[in-house]
Design a protein around this nucleic acid. Structure first.
Length: 700
DNA sequence: GAGCACTGC
């Protein structure tokens, strides 16, 4: 602890904090800011008047850092030093230093907007710019004015954007604390490689043959490329002449790897053996691998982005930012001087890379965040003018307002409704919290709780039916429930009900290839949701509460509730084929994702109307997780859509300039004219595919 | 008939 760089700055830090309500601290990796700042303030007496809170973007960080601090102070974790993350509050009345995820702090400020229990709030790792951190930054700016006399706010950030944060907080002081990284030598490629897979392979082998011992960390974009590179590396290493160089172990590392495979990177290699870790950006911040001396940076990352104009998500491979590239390089200098090989020229780094990663708030759907802010009842706040460090686009905020209006969370003037208030209390996307409230009215709350919980964890819950996986499987896969033809939300419900009937047996999950960790998470979420709903629940929340007519039920009430909750995510089938047209503000041509269990009727046609959980644009625009709904439930929503006036929603449109004066009329979906916004290119691709299909059919 | 970076309440 004594040799941490930050300790030498204690006096300066304390002085600055005494004299200023907000201080930005730039501390690089290894400076000790996460563990030491809270202890300094504690020593100085700040814990006498309240708790010192330290937020973290990730749960594991909140737990591990608090454990360290408790150890250093010689107290039991959960007493003077504790942590709070979702599902787990390890604090007590005696707690003076509290580590928590930024999401938990946002929840707390919902019930206590002044956050009076805290004397100091430290937003740690603010440079990561998580959606939650960005909202907290805006809230802190307001809060320090209201609690000027008794609240201190500290923000820690990385080198590149510290000044921007300082400026945001009316030019507050900015202190820089050196890190404890060893120097990392950077090597650039002369040109951008035609294949960064081949280029990383070559670079990795060069290191293996020429450089002294030390592990190699290779940053790739995704599972696919990682698996390919691992195979190629294994192949090449095997063909090397025996005794010509040291042994090698090659390890993949990405999020969809089962936990037991992930932890393999934490066990040290046998002597005289070099490890190659081929990873996604999970190794950038979330997981720290010891022993890395060499880093190979492809310069790319996969990023999910939301397009508010279309309501569609896409997962794109994009260039990393300078901050990200430096973070990756830094992974080589944790234990001794290292080397970083960038597979792109310095010109690309200097001229093409953005300084910082586009913050999440500018890449996400904001319905949930806007509802959250509305529910805080901030006086005199026009949501379009909320003071964000990097404001999201007006388009994105208006998209959120429209969504919220359609699901009754706000009224036509943009004011939060009582339904909206209840929704904000639920840790769910607005569409799902709206579904829960409606289901409660229809007497199918328990089913809706299950669906909402399942969708909260959905990614990687179900087995993916790729051919490579089938080969690995020891026995043929057992049949999962099929949603009775109604679609994916119903299937998810049925799966959980089966698991419940099997007493939440882990082996049952394994038999059906369901991700165990994911299913346990669902169970926890469901429990949490049902506790929150208990206050207003009109029926039992028990999983088996709605199973009385099992076998011949139509899930009518549940589907109706989903229709109300997903009012802004509806689609209507084309008259003569299985393509759909979304019924939102801008109509899109979309298809049911092939993984869906929605079943066609005897004529081979899908339901006339469906709700979808999300639109994802991959090779084509797809609806993921769809559920059949009925026309008579959809019609009232369309009426509401026609009455929508964005200007009123966003607070009368003060200072809000929009072309034309006809207000919402120009945005009405053209129901009869079949107007769609599909790019020419995509349209012709679809056309070409259709012709190929017809040609094949004709041959037969 | 196709594919999924990473978090979090």
């Amino acid at each position: 602890m004594a040799n941490l760089p930050i300790v030498q700055f204690e006096k300066k830090i304390i002085e600055t904090v005494e004299q200023n309500p907000v201080v930005v601290i730039i501390g690089e990796t290894g400076s000790g800011k996460s563990t030491q700042l809270s202890q300094m303030l504690h020593r100085e007496g700040y814990t006498d008047s309240g708790i010192v809170a330290v937020t973290q973007p990730r749960r594991v960080a909140a737990v591990s850092v608090s454990r360290r601090v408790a150890q250093e102070l010689g107290v039991r974790l959960g007493e003077e030093v504790g942590y709070a993350i979702r599902f787990e509050d390890r604090t007590s009345e005696r707690t003076q230093i509290k580590y928590l995820t930024d999401g938990v702090l946002l929840r707390e400020s919902l019930s206590n907007p002044e956050l009076n229990q805290y004397s100091v709030i430290i937003l740690d790792e603010a440079h990561e710019r998580s959606l939650n951190t960005d909202i907290l930054l805006g809230l802190m700016k307001r809060l320090v004015k209201r609690r000027a006399s008794n609240l201190k706010v500290l923000i820690t950030s990385a080198t590149l954007d510290g000044e921007k944060v300082s400026k945001f907080f009316s030019d507050c002081p900015l202190l820089t604390v050196p890190g404890k990284l060893f120097p990392v030598e950077i090597f650039y490629s002369k040109e951008r490689p035609t294949s960064y897979l081949e280029s990383s392979l070559k670079t990795a082998l060069d290191i293996h043959l020429r450089e002294p011992e030390g592990d190699v960390l290779i940053f790739m974009t995704g599972q696919d490329d990682i698996e390919k590179l691992v195979l190629k590396l294994e192949d090449k290493v095997r063909s090397l002449e025996e005794g010509s160089c040291m042994d090698a172990i090659i390890l993949p590392l990405h999020g969809s790897l089962p936990p037991e495979m992930q932890v393999r990177v934490f066990s040290p290699p046998p002597p005289n053996c070099r490890r190659f870790i081929v990873a996604t950006n999970i190794a950038e911040t979330s997981l720290t691998v010891d022993g890395v001396v060499y880093v190979i940076d492809s310069g790319y990352v996969k990023q999910r982005q939301y397009n508010p104009a279309t309501g569609m998500y896409s997962l794109d491979v994009v260039q990393v930012s300078k901050v990200q590239a430096n973070q990756r390089a830094g992974r080589a200098g944790r234990t001794r001087p290292g080397k970083c090989y960038r597979l792109y020229p310095s010109r690309v780094y200097n001229d093409e890379f953005l300084d910082v990663t586009v913050p999440e708030i500018q890449r996400s759907s904001l319905a949930g965040s806007v509802l959250y802010l509305k529910s805080l009842d901030l006086p005199d706040i026009d949501i379009l003018k909320f003071d964000f460090l990097d404001p999201p686009s007006t388009e994105s905020l208006e998209d959120a307002l429209k969504q919220l209006y359609l699901i009754d969370a706000i009224d036509e003037n943009g004011s939060i409704t009582s339904v909206g208030r209840t929704m904000a209390e639920l840790p769910l996307e607005p569409s799902l919290s709206r579904t829960l409230i409606e289901a409660n009215e229809y007497g199918c709350l328990s089913q809706a709780l299950t669906v909402a919980a399942m969708l909260s964890a959905e990614t990687n819950l179900l087995p993916n039916q790729s051919k490579s996986n089938e080969k690995k499987r020891k026995h043929p896969p057992l049949d999962l429930p099929d949603g009775s033809g109604f679609g994916d939300q119903i299937q998810l419900l049925q799966i959980f009900e089966c698991w419940d009937e099997n007493d939440y047996d882990i082996d049952w999950c394994k038999d059906y290839d369901l991700q165990v960790r994911g299913m346990l998470f669902v169970k926890e979420v469901r429990k949490q949701l049902s506790q929150i709903m208990q206050k207003i629940a009109k029926g039992s929340s028990d999983v088996r509460a709605n199973q009385s007519r099992k076998g011949h039920q139509s899930y009518r009430n549940l589907r109706k509730a989903l229709c109300i909750g997903y009012a802004s995510q509806l689609a209507e089938r084309m008259r003569h084929h299985n393509g759909y047209r979304t019924l939102g503000f801008k109509s899109q041509l979309v298809q049911v994702h092939p993984s869906s269990v929605l079943q066609p009727d005897d004529d081979g046609l899908y339901a006339n109307y469906v709700v979808y959980h999300e639109l994802i644009s991959t090779s084509r625009p797809y609806m993921r997780n769809v559920c059949a709904v009925e026309r008579q439930w959809v019609m009232p929503i369309l009426d509401k859509l026609e009455k929508l006036n964005v200007r009123k929603l966003s607070g009368g449109g003060l200072g809000h300039v929009e072309e034309g004066t006809e207000g919402s009329m120009s945005e009405l979906p053209k129901r009869e004219a079949e107007v769609v916004t599909v790019s020419q290119e995509r349209e012709s691709k679809i056309q070409a595919a259709r012709e190929r299909f017809l040609a094949r059919k004709a041959k037969k």
